[in-house]
Amino acid sequence: MVSISLRNVCLDYPLYGAYDYSLKRRLLGRLIREPAEMRIIRAVDDVTIEAETGARIGLAGPNGSGKSTLLRLIAGVYPPSSGGIAIQGNVVPLLGLNAGVNLDFVAEDNIALLLRISGRKPTRTMIDEIWAFTELETRMQRLPLRMFSSGMLMRVLFATATAFPADILLLDEWLSVVDEHFAEKAEERLLNLVSQAAIVIIASHDQPLLRRICTSVINLDHGRIASIVTVEPPATHAFQLREQRA
């Protein structure tokens, strides 16, 4: 049983200025009784989300409205300041593509390393399958990533990140990073991945994309839920087609 339950979750995000990183400054401040004021913003404010198997939730909102922070909160990167979070199922956060990449290593080693970081034992066939998806030449597997163009690099990273299904998938805006030809193929793969996951939460500015993928879209504003829109399912149509083909 996979589920996400956030009840009245708040997150106070401390903003550390240059002085807040200094222990000397802090101790001195205490000696001369200067009030140590810590700036705090409420990045997530009283958010309640209940999601069961099958939920595809889109997070929309302007920059700084707390989309990424909310995803990180669910992923367990930040502890909530108050409220309750209960999650069942394994969470795979894909928030930044280039986390853990070592540009000096050859491509296949990087793929193997990334797979290990996400808890899988890489095999030759796995790497070959991932490589096939990138549509890059086989000999490039032996080249260090430093020599790849940024577009090619993104293909490799995208292919690796999306290679395996997850119970709960957290995605932050990163479809836009790939070039146009690849974008179509990437979206298809993403949709495929989404269709295999039990719960998907996706943060994006791309309203049409959210409408295609999600069952409901949550609009965030200053960390609060401004509105929840339920999307009528033209999206499921695409899924059914694929299932019939498979």
Partner: peptide, 10 residues
């Protein structure tokens, strides 16, 4: 009061 259950996924 709702008990502040901490993140279980950690």
């Amino acid at each position: 009061a709702p008990s502040e259950q901490r993140t279980m996924n950690v």
